[in-house]
Computed example of a mutant assay.
Amino acid sequence: MTQRIGSAAGLRRIAALATAVLATTVLSAGCGTGDASESTGAAPSPSPDPKAALLAAVPDEKDPAFRFSTVEGADKFDGVVDPAAQGLELSMSEKSQDPEFTMGMTFRVIEEDIWVRVKITGMPGLQDMMKLPKRWMLLDRSKLDDASEVPVYQNADPANTAAVIRTAETVEDRGNGTYGGFADLTANADIRENFSTVDVAALGEAAKKVPFTAVVGPDGNLTSLTLDVPAAGKQKAMKLVAKYYDYGKAPKLTAPTGSQVQKAPASAYEMLNG
C-alpha cells in the first residue's frame, strides 16, 4: 500500500547477501519509533460528503513534516515525510536467524538526491567485512541496476491512501472521526502495483470490495487507514495498515553534511545491485 518507496524484497536479498559474505569469510578463515498513537480531543463533526472530507484529511504539500509507518504482512516500514523539502526518510530492517544478526537500512531523499545508511547489529565485524561505511552514503542513481529498489519522493502521501479512498464508490462517516468503505484493488494498474504483498488476481471479485477503515484526528489530519484483505488461495487474510502522525513535530529533513556523509563506495552498489 505504498508509493515506490523501496523494495522490502530488495532488503531481504541484501540481508541474504550479508549472510553469504559472512559464510564466505568464515569458511576462508576456517571457521522504529515514535509514538504512533492517535491524537486525543474532540472528534470532527459528521460531514455531509464523507468521501470528500476523508480525502481532504490526506496529507498534501502544504502540511508540515510528519512521521509515518506501514505494515503489509511481514513488511514493515517507518519514516518521515517533509513536503517543504520534497523529502522522505524511510527505514526498514531484516533479521537473519542463522547466523543471528539484524540489518537496518535508512534511505533519505531530498528532491533528486538520495543517501543510504546501513547499520548491522548482533554480529560484530560483519559490517566491516562487507566494507560498508556507517556514515550516510550519497548514491548515484545511474549506478543502480534497478532504480525501483530505492525510494523516490513522489508526494506527501507515501502510503497512497488517497488513491485507495478514491476507488470507493461511497464512504460512510461512522462518527468520532472514523470512516469506512470498500476499496477496489483492481481499479487501475497503479493501484494493483501498490499492493505488492497482495495477490490481487487470487482474490478475484473480492478484490473489488476490500473493506477499509480510516481515522481522522481532531486536527483534521488523517491518522490511519486499515485495509482488511480476505484470505485467497495460499494467501492468508491480512491487515494493511498505514499510520500518519506527529504532524509538525517530526524533524525537518536536510541533506547530510560534513563528516556525516561520503560518496557511496563500490561495495554499496554491489550490495544494492545484488
Rank of each mutant, 00 (worst) to 15 (best):
T106F: 05
T106I: 04
R108F: 09
R108H: 06
I110A: 01
I110L: 08
E112D: 14
E112N: 14
D113I: 00
I114E: 14
I114H: 06
V116Y: 09
R117I: 09
K119T: 14
I120D: 13
I120A: 13
G122R: 09
M123C: 08
M123K: 14
P124D: 15
P124Q: 11
G125R: 04
L126V: 09
Q127V: 15
Q127E: 13
M129D: 15
M130V: 06
K131N: 10
K131F: 09
K131M: 13
L132G: 07
R135N: 13
W136G: 02
M137N: 15
M137Y: 07
L138D: 10
D140P: 02
D140F: 00
R141F: 10
R141C: 10
R141V: 09
S142R: 08
K143V: 08
K143S: 10
D145H: 12
S148W: 10
E149T: 10
V150E: 03
P151D: 10
P151V: 12
P151C: 13
V152K: 02
V152A: 03
Y153G: 00
Q154P: 00
N155K: 11
A159P: 11
A159N: 06
N160Q: 12
A162S: 15
A162G: 13
V164L: 09
V164K: 04
R166K: 14
T167G: 14
T170L: 07
T170M: 05
E172R: 11
E172H: 08
R174G: 05
G175I: 03
G177H: 01
Y179N: 02
G180N: 02
G181T: 11
G181A: 08
D184K: 08
L185R: 12
T186L: 07
T186V: 05
